[in-house]
């Protein structure tokens, strides 16, 4: 067992634990903070996969910018009565958890069948995750996708403006 695998194990367990806290906790602020912790764990997982740049972006954008927005929304909505949002029907819960366990079992069987543990990465892998290599790929091989994403973001911005405008003129 290598050191990378040890790190991977710790991070993976913590990531799952924080995700469970995020879903199960009744207090929305605690959920949001658990999600922040989860994003940090994910960033750590990216690091073990030699993707340094993605890891930094994960922390900057998700744990930084987006989670601030989420917490702001929670504060502005001023959620008080979470009991009302509770699922009333029992059988739905049971059915959903059965299906979920079945899905997890299926995924486990798939991945365990493929063998666990990290396969030997080439020494070149260390440069692939660096910004220079990423930028080179993005602006040569993936240039068309990059440009198409510009249209996608533009659509999203227009949507935000159209739907959030206060007055109808």
């Amino acid at each position: 067992m290598s050191l990378t695998f040890l790190f991977f194990g710790i991070l993976a367990v913590l990531a799952i634990a924080t995700a469970v806290i995020c879903v199960s906790n009744k207090n929305p602020v605690v959920s949001a903070m658990a999600l922040v912790a989860h994003f940090f764990m994910l960033a750590g997982l990216y690091l073990t996969l030699q993707a340094q740049f993605i890891a930094i972006l994960q922390i900057l954008i998700y744990a930084g910018a987006i989670m601030v927005l989420v917490i702001f929304v929670i504060m502005l909505l001023n959620l008080g009565d979470e009991e009302k949002l509770r699922e009333k029907t029992k059988y739905r819960k049971i059915l959903a958890s059965l299906l979920g366990i079945g899905f997890i079992a299926m995924l486990c069987s798939v991945y365990l069948g493929g063998g666990l543990g990290n396969k030997a990465t080439s020494p070149m892998a260390i440069t692939i995750g660096a910004p220079a290599a990423l930028g080179k790929e993005l602006f040569t091989n993936y240039l068309f996708a990059f440009e198409a994403i510009a249209l996608l973001l533009l659509t999203a911005i227009i949507g935000a403006v159209v739907l959030a405008k206060r007055k109808v003129d």
Binding site: Y142, F144, A145, A148, I149, L151, L152, T155, A156, I158, G159, V162, L163, V168
Partner: peptide, 24 residues
């Protein structure tokens, strides 16, 4: 390329979501 296909689907769907709620 599946990536381009996906981006196309998303551009289309995002515009559709907005158009469906256009009379807000």
């Amino acid at each position: 390329n599946l990536l381009v296909l996906f981006i196309g689907i998303e551009i289309m769907s995002l515009s559709f979501y907005i158009l469906a709620g256009f009379i807000r």
